[in-house]
Amino acid sequence: MASAGSNIPWPPIEGIISDLDGVIYRGSTAIADAVEAFTGWQKAGVPFCFATNNSTHTPEDVVRRLSGCGLSIAPSQVVTSAVTAAELVRTRYPHLTRIYVIGAPSLVTAMRDVGLEVTEQRPEAVVMGLDRAITHEKMRIAIEAILNGAVFIGTNPDLLLPMASGFEPGAGATIAAVTAATQVQPLIVGKPQVPMIETALSRLGTNRASTVMIGDQVPTDIQAGKRAGLVTVLVTTGVPTRQDPSLMAPDFIVSSLREIDVSAARAAQPRQRRA
Rank of each mutant, 00 (worst) to 15 (best):
G27A: 04
T237K: 03
H136Q: 09
R242P: 09
A176S: 15
Q193T: 12
R271K: 08
T182K: 11
L20N: 01
P47F: 11
Y25Q: 09
R112P: 01
V46Q: 01
S256T: 14
A85L: 06
A267H: 00
Q185V: 07
Q223D: 10
K226P: 04
R271F: 10
I73A: 01
V194N: 02
F38C: 05
S76Q: 08
R273L: 14
G238N: 10
A171F: 09
N53A: 05
T97Q: 10
R227I: 03
D244E: 11
I31D: 04
G190T: 03
V62F: 08
A224M: 11
K138I: 14
I260V: 14
P11C: 12
M196F: 02
T236S: 11
A142W: 07
L71K: 02
L88F: 11
L201V: 14
V101G: 01
G5K: 05
I17V: 10
R273H: 10
E87I: 04
R274E: 03
Q185K: 12
G166C: 07
V79M: 12
Q243N: 14
V235E: 08
L107E: 02
G22L: 03
Q77D: 06
S246Q: 09
G172H: 12
P186R: 04
P245K: 03
A267W: 00
N53Q: 03
A180P: 05
A173F: 10
I13E: 09
S18A: 08
T109M: 07
I253P: 06
P9H: 05
I253V: 15
I153G: 00
N207V: 15
I31E: 05
Q223F: 02
V233K: 03
I260W: 04
M248E: 13
E259V: 05
V62E: 13
L159C: 15
